[in-house]
Design a protein around this nucleic acid. Sequence first.
DNA 1: TAAAAATGTAAAGTTTTATTTACTTTTATA
DNA 2: TATAAAAGTAAATAAAACTTTACATTTTTA
Lengths: 65, 65
Amino acid sequence: MKNLVKVERARLDMTQAELAKELGVSRQTIHAIEKDKFNPSVTLALKMGRLFNLPVEELFIIDED
Amino acid sequence: MKNLVKVERARLDMTQAELAKELGVSRQTIHAIEKDKFNPSVTLALKMGRLFNLPVEELFIIDED
DNA sequence: TAAAAATGTAAAGTTTTATTTACTTTTATA
DNA sequence: TATAAAAGTAAATAAAACTTTACATTTTTA
């Protein structure tokens, strides 16, 4: 799984800490997601999609099957 | 959070066990998701969306903010 | 209507997400 | 080029997803 969180965060000119606060998670969670350390919940993915104005399918891309 | 998994599963005429196998999870996981017992990973949500031919945003709906 | 299949429920255990704290390194700015 | 802000890393902990097993209840079908 890869994702566009870092890029979209840059588009909004937000720091990891700002994004974390906005989404109600810790900065480490944002960092870990950006570094593909884990697989967030669908709720968090939906919130991110809403904030970035991007469908979950475009924000998070499964490598293959 | 609510979701349309039970409805979409019915549309495909699949049992919980069949869906679980198709998605590579246990039947209890499907059951728990259908009963809103938990918040699946974005990966599982994406796989479900692909199978049901439905965007994650339509399959999983956050109650409010 | 009896048997089988599907679903509901529950509990114990494992794995992974997420938090907290703390410190280092990199990048931006005064 | 110092200083501050942001990002990277790491470890210990908490919380939640997910598995496994097992059995009860409901629904389907022979």
